[in-house]
Design a protein around this nucleic acid. Structure first.
Length: 767
DNA sequence: TACTAAGCTCTTTTT
DNA sequence: GAGCTTAGTA
């Protein structure tokens, strides 16, 4: 090892002069455990990248540094920034998401655990589909054992390192399941684990737990990795779960050079097992830990920083810290009310258009953040109409599309014939006369003979039970075998192209001239191009096998295979995926009770606190301008539902908001805005609405609320009633269905131009 | 076995 | 509203 560059600790190297005191301290503290509590916008990524560069400058080998992140986006960004600091050495760093780094390790060691080295990675769709067939095979009630719920629970259990066997032997867990009316869960879990293993497949959680098992059971392997990684760094440490915590602890056990960076106030992944205690209790594992707090925010105006602080202080469970900024005070936060979700979208598009012109800003200065992916739709429409370029992150990713998954399934099956989910997907697609009956027989035979389904398929002739189906199955098997033979002789692209043609996948879509068909054909071509790029990429040091491509795809849900990363467009994304990003102007939309905070999150205080941290994350994305938008009614469940403003708006201290609300907090928020509008014609709420021309909803005097008719209650309605709705005016009830929570009223509103609406809740009175 | 129409359920966030 | 499952028909 080369220490020639090594300098005295008291001397500050010139390249670190740009950092502030605590940042520099964090960068230079490279020996021994270190915890960096980094408030939002405090230059966390900067510290991490400089720290890695600093270690490299001291002469350490890039291979000795392990840097773990949660998202591909974060990993990519960090790699780019390090590359600009230290050059090509950045390529050799072990840096990536937990899943991608550990999958890479597992590829080398999988056989020790009984997996093939070309193991498949099951994404959650594969996992759910497998669970579904297990439930079916076990003849259980599919309403009780829903795949999503099962996978969620399996994931939680796995992340706490409880194996299927340990689970069924744990009486308290099994009893708990009985109480909760899912007594068969242990059996399903067992079956699920066995089937994954038999298919040579790991799900997302297996990648983590198998890494842990590998390190735990094979001391010589553990020893090797422990010594290899002299420096371990974990970004977003507040989001680690138990296995991730154990793995990093194990790997860092020899050198003890572990550096974790996080912000408990930004922990937003508890729903998938993140354990905030990992960061809260870090000093228990490392009593001699050095703790550094980065509290100065460089990103946002003082108003935004303080508003965020006023929100997060409602949470009880957190580390003490005081985020501050020396930036200018800046504008107050706007609160914008719209009539419907589409009005909200039109307002935002219009507002962006105006701000752009007034302040000469590019499109990419703007971001729209929402709670759920489904909220993006009205914005797409509004931006298209305004001619503003936009880009939606997340949602249905390219690799989740049906046509893409179909071809990928063929590729997966070629690489790993035991991959049962892939087999089930393609055995009769395109249709080749192998129907449900035959498939079920195949699966049954596989279970009976303790063989993989592929073994049955490839020897179909030997099973008379298959009857007439045998010939068709045999043809399919022969085709697959011909693909497998090509693995040795052809590169990934040639093979994929051959498969796409041979299976007629490409041809079927080419002949489909519907809009969807054309787009599917284009998608498939794009996938083929991506494979071609992958197999011809000289830059990458990675092995260019098909198997590697499939792994990349499985772990790269992040999408954005950006053809043009510099495109100037407005960003639309969920708050979750906005973590780590920043924008001059941010619109947080859908600020409504039951949407944000969502109804699912309101069962416990912990959930509400996580939701509040999410709001904190959203606010702190904004550099200069922040608007909080909500609608008074919104399309959901296929009908228009009235909405109330989110409690989170009320949790921001008034002094940071651009509206005169002094002394009005206790009022019903709806009444508040109606009365405000008449009194103050220039308040931001009214301004927002005046921009929306034409406003589809007629301005009408608001009838006084009937004290006998509670908001959200339509129980008193009868068919034929004439009602006056707070927003939609007069209407006639034409149909009533269901009881209790399922009660629905269909009402014709004359005020909406004879429009029919199905309402589940309504604020209105009977005339 | 394959296709179509009607019915049902689900709506959080990501590797 | 969308996506998926079931029932019914060719």
């Amino acid at each position: 090892m080369n220490f020639s560059d090594h300098h005295d600790n008291n001397e500050i190297p010139p390249y670190l002069e740009k950092l502030n005191e605590p940042q520099r301290e964090a960068v230079m503290h490279t020996e021994g455990p270190l915890m960096i509590i980094a408030g939002a916008g405090s230059g966390k990524t900067r510290v991490l990248t400089f720290r890695i560069a600093h270690i490299l400058k001291q002469g350490f080998d890039p291979f000795s540094i392990l840097a773990l992140t949660f998202t591909n986006k974060a990993a990519r960004e960090m790699r780019n920034r390090i590359e600009s600091l230290v050059g090509p050495a950045a390529k050799s760093l072990w840096m990536g998401t937990f899943h991608s780094v550990f999958a890479r390790i597992l590829r080398q060691e999988a056989e020790k655990l009984g997996y093939p080295s070309n193991f498949t990675i099951y994404d959650s769709d594969d996992s759910k589909s497998l669970l579904k067939s297990i439930v079916k095979e076990m003849n259980l009630d599919e309403k009780v054992y829903k795949p999503g719920m099962l996978l969620g629970r399996i994931s939680t259990v796995k992340n706490n390192l409880i194996s299927a066997r340990a689970y069924s032997e744990d009486e308290s867990l099994v009893n708990e399941d009985k109480q909760a009316n899912r007594g068969k869960f242990a059996d399903i879990y067992r079956q699920y684990a066995a089937r994954c293993f038999k298919s040579g497949a790991m799900d997302f959680d297996d990648i983590l737990i198998n890494t842990y098992i590998l390190l735990d059971r094979f001391p010589e392997v553990c020893h090797r990795w422990q010594h290899r990684f002299r420096f371990v760094m974990v970004d977003e440490y507040q989001d680690t779960n138990r296995v991730q915590y154990l793995i990093t602890k194990t790997i860092a056990a020899v050198h003890q050079n572990i550096c974790v960076v996080g912000d408990d106030a930004q922990s937003i992944y508890a729903f998938r097992g993140a354990n905030i205690q990992n960061i809260l209790n870090f000093n228990r594992d490392y009593p001699d830990v050095k703790t550094i707090k980065l509290e100065q925010n460089y990103r946002s105006t003082r108003n935004i920083v303080n508003a965020a602080g006023s929100v997060i202080k409602h949470n009880r469970n957190q580390l003490q810290k005081e985020v501050w900024t020396s930036n200018e005070t800046g504008e107050k936060i706007k609160v914008v009310r719209s009539a419907t979700d589409s009005d909200e979208a039109r307002f935002v598009a219009q507002n962006i258009f105006e701000e752009k012109n007034r302040e000469h800003l590019p499109n990419k200065a703007f971001a729209i953040l929402y709670r759920t992916n489904s909220q993006s739709r009205p914005f797409e429409e509004a931006f298209r109409r305004m001619g503003i370029d936009y880009r939606i992150y997340g949602g249905m990713s390219f690799y989740q599309r049906k046509e893409i998954k179909d071809l990928l399934a063929y590729l997966r099956l070629t690489v790993n014939p035991n991959d049962e989910e892939a087999l089930k997907r393609v055995i009769n697609y395109p249709t080749r006369g192998i129907g449900d009956t035959t498939i079920n027989r195949l699966l049954f035979l596989a279970g009976e003979n303790k063989a993989s389904t592929w073994e049955i398929v490839s020897n179909a002739r030997q099973y008379p039970d298959l009857g007439a189906g045998a010939g068709k199955v045999e043809n399919f098997a022969m085709m697959m075998k011909s693909f497998m033979a090509m693995l040795q002789t052809h590169n990934a692209y040639e093979l994929a192209m051959h498969i796409a043609k041979q299976t007629t996948l490409l041809k079927v879509l080419y002949e489909d001239k519907t809009v969807e068909g054309i787009s599917k054909y284009e998608n498939l071509t794009e996938l083929l191009n991506a494979i071609q790029e992958f197999s011809e990429d000289d830059e990458s040091e990675k092995e260019k096998s098909l198997s590697n491509f499939l792994e990349e795809v499985a772990l790269f849900t992040d999408d954005q295979k950006d053809k043009d990363p510099d495109r100037d467009c407005v960003t639309l994304m969920t708050i979750h995926s906005s973590k780590g990003l920043e924008f001059p102007c941010v619109y947080i939309v859908g600020m409504e009770e039951n949407l944000f905070p969502g109804q699912m999150s309101l069962t416990s205080r912990a959930d509400l606190e996580e939701e509040r941290r999410l709001f904190y994350v959203a606010i702190t994305r904004a550099e200069r301008k922040l608007s909080l938008c909500y609608a008074t009614s919104r399309f959901r469940y296929g009908s228009l539902l009235p909405c109330e403003p989110s409690r989170f708006i009320d949790e921001i201290s008034n002094e940071f908001l651009d509206m005169n609300l002094a002394g009005m907090k206790k009022e019903n928020p709806l009444t508040r805005f109606y009365s405000q509008r008449t009194q103050q014609p220039n308040n931001p709420v009214t301004r927002a609405e005046s921009l929306l021309k034409p406003n589809p909803l007629p301005e009408k005097p608001v009838p006084p609320a009937d004290p006998n008719f509670e908001a959200g209650d339509i129980s008193g309605l009868k068919e034929g009633d004439i009602v006056v709705h707070q927003r939609f005016g007069r209407g006639k009830v034409t149909m009533l269905e269901g009881d209790g929570d399922n009660r629905k009223a269909t009402i014709f509103f004359t005020g909406l131009g004879e429009k029919k609406l199905v309402l589940k809740f309504a604020k209105m009175r009977i005339e």
